[in-house]
């Protein structure tokens, strides 16, 4: 017996059942992976993908106009309802808004991301990063509501314009057909401002990440080779940061497409995709049409994502 003890220099731990399980997992890495993923993937697939399939299935059902009941038969009649002039109007309006918000968001976000990523000293950088993060995570609804207060006819913006004696300009802007309205809080312009505000952090963060990844050696090489800062920015920094902009635009575009709270709280009476979905499933009780309508932003987003992948946005997420 003692010879055996000498043989193995390392004292072996006692073989408990737990240890046997552990050893078995060690020898079967694939099964380990599988058992780690089994429960969370079951959740995601059953709850989430299951729900998405249910949604898709619903969009092929239809609402019986006479009985008000949902007929659970496969068919395309609900999609036919989708392609009316009024609905196409809504889709176009929402998409144009999403595109405008995305462009404006990128323009406003870029200087902040650029300054934070490449110029701010470490302490300020931490502060700025947190300053972008806080609104991102804090209450969406409350932040929308705040703009109701700000944009109101008797609110702070009107007050500022009055103070500067520029009330005429504000009224002039509001009188522009298409973007104006009775007051900022009932106009496309106001809605646009709120969308930009709400999704801005989603744009800033990916741009910041992309800018931080731009190697200094490239910037230095460019200036060593005689490029002026402006030229270096245009030819080195901007192209390398562009995937970040595209990554941010995925969020701003997608979130604007599906939002129904902002058009409801801020907008005038014209509908956006999100509101139609909300109204169809709620008061109208037409879940099939609501489901078919959500397929629209999903399809638009899929096209968008395919383009974004081409532009290398997924590495910047």
């Amino acid at each position: 017996m003692s010879a055996v003890m000498l043989d193995s220099q390392v004292p072996q731990p006692p073989q408990t059942p737990l240890r046997r399980v552990s050893a078995w997992f060690f020898r079967h890495p694939t099964l380990t992976l599988f058992s780690l993923l089994a429960v969370p993937m079951a959740w995601m697939v059953v709850v989430y993908l299951g729900s998405l399939s249910a949604l898709l299935a619903q969009s092929f059902f239809r609402l019986d106009g006479f009985t008000g009941r949902i007929v659970r038969e496969f068919g395309l009649s609900t999609y036919e309802q989708l392609f009316t002039a009024a609905n196409i109007d809504i889709v176009v309006r929402t998409t144009v808004m999403a595109a405008a918000v995305t462009v404006a968001g990128a323009l406003i976000a870029f200087p902040l991301a650029y300054y934070t990523a490449r110029f701010a000293p470490p302490r300020l950088k931490t502060f700025l990063y947190l300053a972008v993060l806080l609104p991102l995570w804090s209450s969406y609804l409350v932040r929308v509501y705040t703009w109701k207060i700000i944009l109101a006819q008797e609110g702070i913006i009107t007050w500022v314009f009055d103070l500067l004696g520029l009330r005429g300009i504000l009224d002039g802007i509001l009188a522009i057909p298409g973007i104006g309205g009775p007051s900022l809080s009932f106009s496309y312009l106001g809605m646009f401002l709120v969308f930009v505000y709400i999704w801005l952090p989603y744009m800033v963060l990916p741009i910041m990440t992309a800018l931080e990844r731009v190697p200094n050696s490239l910037v230095e090489a460019s200036s060593d080779l005689g490029a002026r800062p402006r030229y270096t920015f245009r030819r080195i920094i901007l192209p390398l940061a562009f995937p970040g902009v595209v990554a941010g635009s995925i969020f701003t575009f997608s979130l604007t497409l599906g939002d129904y709270i902002i058009p409801q709280v801020i907008g005038n009476s014209s509908f956006f995709i999100g509101q139609v979905v909300y109204a169809q499933q709620g008061t109208a009780g037409n879940i099939p049409l609501a489901a078919a309508f959500t397929v629209v932003p999903v399809v638009i987003m899929l096209i968008y994502l395919l383009i974004a992948r081409r532009l290398g946005a997924f590495n910047a997420l």
Binding site: M41, V47, Q58, D259, V277, P297
Partner: peptide
């Protein structure tokens, strides 16, 4: 695909996830 699946619920517009869950619950 798994990491995409995990991100999907916040990348898709909230209304899609919302109405999807609602259809599942209703079915």
């Amino acid at each position: 695909s798994i990491s995409l699946l995990v991100i999907l619920p916040i990348a898709l517009p909230g209304i899609v996830s919302g109405i999807a869950l609602r259809s599942a619950v209703s079915i």
